[in-house]
Design a binder for these strands. Structure first.
Lengths: 198, 198
DNA sequence: TTGACATGTCACCGGATGGTGACTTATAAA
DNA sequence: TTTATAAGTCACCATCCGGTGACATGTCAA
C-alpha cells in the first residue's frame, strides 16, 4: 500500500459511501468501513479520531442536500415570479426528483428518522436550515395566511420522503407502486393536486 | 420462579413490548427480551422456536392497527354517507389521532421503514390489507376519477406517519413543532386543506 | 414412595463488534 | 549512510450477540 496519508483519508471517506450503499446504515461500523476501504481500521482512529468524526467528514464531503438550482431546474428569480401555489409545486416536484437520484441521501434520511446521533442531529439541523432558507428566499412575500400552505408543503415532503425510504426495499405502499414509474407519476399528480388546494 | 409455562409465555410476549418501548427496535434481541421478562433466554427458543416467532406472537397479541371504528369514531354507515372528500378527511384525522396514542405501533412503523425482516414484511402486508379493506368498505363507489384523491390520501398518511416517527426523538421538522399540540393542530389543518383539493 | 417428565437455571461456544498497544517499514532529512 | 518519524500492519482485549447442551428441580401419575 502506497504511503499517502491524504489518499488513505479519501479512501476512508469514500468507503463510508460504499458501505452505506451496500449494507445501509445498520451495518455501518469501524470494521465494515475499514474493510470497504481496504485499510486497517486503526487508521480511522489515527486520522479522524473515531467513526463519528469520519462520518462527519463524509457528510461535509458530499452534496447531500441538492442545491436550490438543482431543485428548481431554472433561475430562482423565474420561479419567484410564479403564484405561490406554483412555487410550492415547483419546489416539491423538483425536490422529489432530486432525491430520487440520491440513494445515499435517502439512506441517511432513513437513518436520521430512526436514530438520534450527533451526526444525524447535525444533518437534521442542516436540513432545517435549508428549508428555512428556501422559505426566506422564495416566499419572502408570504404572510400568516400562507402558513397552512407551507405546512401542507412540509407534510407532503415528509410524505414522499417516507415513500422514498420505503421504496428502498418495499414495493408498494397504500396502493402506490413504489417500484414503477407509474406509481411515482401518481405521486406527482397527487402533489400537484394538493398544492392547488385551499 | 413459579413453574407456569403459560404465564412465562405471556411474560415474554409482554417483555417484547417493554423492550420495544425502552430501547426501540434497535436493541431488540434475545438477550434484551429475556432480561426484560426476568426469564432465561433459552425459554424463547423452547416456547417459540426463536425470536422471530416470539415477535410474531407479540404482533398477533396486540391491536397494533386501530380498528375501523376507533379510527372513524362513529358508525361506518354514517361516514359512508358523507361526500368523498369528507370521508377521506375523517379517515386521515382519525388515523392520525389513533396512531398518536400508540407509541409501540409507531416504533414498529419506524422499524418497518428501515429493515426488511419476515416480521416487518408481514406487518407491512397486514397494513396494506387494512388499507385495501378501508377502501373497499368506505369507497366502494369510487371510480377511476377518484384515483388521484386516494393517492393523495396515501401520501398524506405517509407524511404524518413520517412525522410521528421523527417526533419520537426530534422536535421540529420543516418548521412544524412536533413536540407541541400547536404543531399537530397545524398538521390537521393541512390535512383538511389537502382533502378538499381538486 | 418412586420415577418420569416438564419447567427453569447455568455455563459455555463461536463470531462480530469497538478499541488499543506493539510492531514493521517506507520516506526523507541530516 | 544513518536515523527519526510518519504510515501502515498485526495481534489482542473486553463485550455483546445468538444459540445450545448439560444440569437442577418442581409436579404429577403410577
Amino acid at each position: 500500500m502506497a504511503r499517502d496519508k491524504e489518499l488513505t483519508r479519501q479512501r476512508l471517506i469514500e468507503a463510508v459511501g460504499t458501505a452505506l450503499s451496500e449494507q445501509g446504515f445498520q451495518g455501518l461500523g469501524v470494521n465494515a468501513v475499514a474493510r470497504a476501504a481496504g485499510v486497517d481500521k486503526v487508521l480511522i482512529y489515527r486520522y479522524f479520531g473515531g467513526l463519528p468524526e469520519l462520518l462527519e467528514a463524509y457528510g461535509e464531503s458530499q452534496g447531500f442536500w441538492p442545491s436550490r438550482e438543482e431543485v428548481l431546474g431554472r433561475e430562482v428569480a423565474v420561479v419567484k415570479a410564479l403564484p405561490k401555489a406554483e412555487r410550492v409545486e415547483a419546489v416539491l416536484l423538483g425536490l422529489l426528483d432530486a432525491l430520487r437520484h440520491r440513494p445515499q441521501t435517502i439512506e441517511v434520511l432513513a437513518w436520521e428518522a430512526v436514530q438520534q446521533s450527533p451526526l444525524t442531529q447535525r444533518l437534521a439541523e442542516r436540513r432545517e436550515a435549508w428549508s428555512r432558507q428556501i422559505l426566506a428566499e422564495l416566499f419572502d412575500d408570504a404572510g400568516p395566511e400562507d402558513r397552512s400552505l407551507l405546512t401542507l408543503a412540509s407534510l407532503l415532503v415528509a410524505g414522499f420522503q417516507y415513500l422514498l425510504i420505503r421504496a428502498r426495499r418495499g414495493t408498494v405502499y397504500g396502493g402506490i407502486a413504489l417500484d414503477s414509474e407509474v406509481g411515482w407519476a401518481e405521486v406527482r399528480d397527487a402533489i400537484r393536486r394538493a398544492c392547488h388546494a385551499g
